[in-house]
Design a protein around this nucleic acid. Structure first.
Lengths: 121, 121
DNA sequence: CTGTATCCCGTGAGATACTG
DNA sequence: CAGTATCTCACGGGATACAG
């Protein structure tokens, strides 16, 4: 079993970057966690739950995640229209890793914030 | 064992965001992976390995990570001066999660890029 | 309800030059 | 070698208004 290594060559498309650049935006991770927790959720509900994401950014975020095959979009031709989003299989396979990161964050946040304050450049 | 849940309340400092906002920048993750793989590395070497990070951004990245207690900085009063960086315990505890994400990325990148291309808005 | 279309601004980040 | 200091610019992302 080879050590999990990373290609750091300049223009070479480092896989970590390709994916993390997307996850690194302001909302993707939150959306994934939310869908992971709630299953199938409609647009409006996602926005309410996250609380401070604009319509524009939520649309963009969902489209990116959809383009990457991480969430799927389901339209119900009701009136008023209903659109629900859920994780794809790929999204589900990503979820646990995000969750672990989230858990780590939760455990360490308090101390990190403390350290951050005490740190003097 | 309670379900790993996330606080999505608006102004509430969501831990995921607090941490991921930092990790979400362009270079932090790569630095962590590099230090995780190589142990103690000097400034210049990090820059060479990553390949396309500017001095300015590498400095900022390292300082942020240091402020968060994820990497530590060691100065050797030689001439020319030598400065080495390594993961702290906290950094080490974060590393496996980043690595898993990285591995996931490596496994799924090819297909994601393909999907991304075929996706039509 | 679920988006799109603009306008606009702050900041992330590169290039370059300089210092201890 | 390991940074700092500016300058500059593009773009992420918010506010608002409009559309299907």
């Amino acid at each position: 079993m080879k050590k999990s290594s990373v290609k750091f060559s300049p223009s070479d498309k480092c896989p970590v970057r390709t994916v993390l650049d997307r996850l690194g935006d302001k909302w993707s991770v939150l959306v994934i966690l939310l869908l992971g927790a709630k299953g199938s959720v409609r647009f409006n509900h996602i926005q309410k739950e996250i609380g401070d994401v604009s319509q524009k950014m939520l649309t963009i975020t969902l489209k990116s995640l959809e383009a990457d095959g991480i969430v799927s979009r389901h339209v119900f031709a009701e009136v008023p229209i209903r659109v629900e989003y859920r994780l794809t299989e790929r999204g589900e396979s990503l979820l646990p890793h995000i969750q672990q990161l989230s858990d780590w964050a939760e455990e360490n946040m308090r101390q990190i914030l403390k350290d951050r304050k005490q740190y003097v450049a």
